[in-house]
Design a protein around this nucleic acid. Structure first.
Lengths: 124, 124
DNA sequence: GGCATATTCAACCAAACGGTTGAGATTGCC
DNA sequence: GGCAATCTCAACCGTTTGGTTGAATATGCC
């Protein structure tokens, strides 16, 4: 309904439903999930984020815009380099929404790393 | 990349990434999230699911198909009525993925109900 | 059989998505 | 100044999405 490409600043003046729309549709793309995983390790410049992917820089720039408008990352211009930083707080509302449908046991980092390994091995 | 409308049975023979694609894009629509919330209270027939929405029955039927192929609900035909049942387990993998980006405190039911009230009030 | 009920199918439509390319803007450096 | 590097913009393109209608398919009931 709301064009994910044309949303305003992350969070401000948006309903809960609109925020969930933005977060979930941002997460519904494997490239964007991979980007989030990369940013989990370290902040990165746009060009460095784009490096491992087989698509144009402009495409990655768009993906970063979508993640940014969903509030999942923040971007800070420093010189001619734009640094991208993971913002895990935006996942919180969505996570609350999901957890409420069933009680999932607490997750430890081991499970997460096994999970990531699985996703990257199978995803090609 | 994968047409969400043409996916096979929920879960079987799909990679982790494909399952996350299906679950997150299923959750990225307010109508489908509202349907899940309705099914949290009780199992429902397709017609009854469609009743509160201002769109055609066929549209709701499509939404239910998407939720079903994402594994978020199951559908059981009984006579001429198709019953829809919430399947919270499908949210588990996705929830694990999300939780790993930050430690979110445990959620209680009060928070969830306040959350739902918010979403429905603001969503129209 | 005949008819209402429940649900999907098929064809269509406008809009959004995810990608491309080429042309800007800025910024840093010699 | 001149030039490379970083990133976005704008226009385009094929595919997917989310909705609509009208017909079709079962099923239940009298």
């Amino acid at each position: 309904m709301i064009p994910v490409d044309e949303l305003q600043e992350p969070g401000l003046n948006r309903t809960m439903s609109e925020r969930l729309d933005a977060v979930f549709s941002a997460l519904a793309d494997p490239t964007r999930r991979a980007i989030l995983s990369m940013l989990l390790e370290d902040d990165m410049a746009v060009t460095d984020v784009a490096a491992p992917f087989e698509m144009s820089l402009a495409a990655i720039s768009k993906h970063l815009g979508i993640l940014s408008r969903a509030g999942l990352i923040s971007q800070e211009q420093r010189g001619r380099v734009k640094w991208c930083k993971l913002e895990p707080d935006a996942l919180r509302d969505a996570s609350i929404w999901m957890q409420s449908f069933g009680q999932f046991e607490a997750v430890n980092l081991d499970a997460f790393e096994k999970f990531l390994a699985l996703e990257f091995r199978e995803d090609g």
